[in-house]
């Protein structure tokens, strides 16, 4: 098979799977199912394209679909704050960083290593699904049958909005304030470290005056 046909086959299969999943979700669980199917397909399809694509730029953009899909999944799980954080940080921050890295390094169009990718897909897929199957068979998960917490307004009325409560939890002395401050320190340290690692060494610019630079 030549490259073009391969590409076409892949995306065709992806489209068919998407439609199928969407239909299945709609039939099985109505609107929520359809939404779930949509986000799941965004998440997993993005990941699959990311693995599949030869061009790293396309892979990075496929990752955007993944991150957005995860944000959607968070919404379905009643975590609106997390969904927004996911979009802000992952789509807006980390993805931008990755794109920066892609742009700062030379275009590196690798030849497709189909056997390699397929072998990994098959092996990991088989392993993960087998384990998942076994776990699903044997594990007893303590699950509530609690329905949705209600409409957004009700939730806000009962518990306060998610963002509100998370904000309080962050700063309440008996909850997460230490972890929160530590996270702040971690971020600062990581930023300083990143700048330190990535900065161009002075020796590279002026090799004569290299003394005193570690």
């Amino acid at each position: 098979m030549d490259q073009k046909a391969l590409q076409r086959a892949f995306y065709g299969a992806l489209a068919v799977l998407t439609l199928f999943a969407f239909g299945a979700g709609l039939v099985k669980a109505g609107g929520e199912g359809a939404a779930f199917a949509l986000f799941a397909v965004m998440t997993l399809g993005g990941g699959l394209v990311c693995v599949w694509e030869r061009s790293i730029v396309r892979s990075a953009f496929a990752l955007m679909s993944t991150f957005s899909g995860v944000a959607g999944v968070f919404v379905l799980l009643e975590s609106d704050f997390l969904a927004m954080a996911q979009i802000l940080i992952y789509v807006g921050g980390i993805l931008a960083l990755i794109l920066f890295a892609v742009m700062l390094t030379p275009p590196d169009m690798e030849e497709r290593r189909l056997p390699r990718v397929l072998a990994a897909l098959v092996a990991v897929g088989a392993g993960v699904s087998w384990i998942g199957w076994q776990v699903a068979q044997t594990a007893e998960w303590l699950v509530t049958s609690r329905p949705l917490d209600g409409t957004a307004a009700e939730v806000a009325g009962t518990f306060g909005a998610n963002a509100d409560r998370i904000g309080v939890a962050f700063l309440a002395p008996d909850q997460y304030v230490v972890a929160f401050e530590l996270a702040a320190v971690l971020l600062t340290v990581a930023l300083v470290a990143a700048v330190y690692i990535a900065r161009r060494k002075r020796t590279d610019i002026e090799p004569q005056t290299g003394e005193g630079v570690s």
């Binding site: 940080i89 990755i98 939890a169």
Partner: peptide, 20 residues
């Protein structure tokens, strides 16, 4: 949810350092 928030924070730090 709080754990997930901290994971996101960690991921941000990790991404910055890793890209450097």
């Amino acid at each position: 949810k709080m754990f997930a928030v901290f994971t996101i924070i960690l991921a941000a730090a990790e991404a910055a350092v890793a890209l450097a």
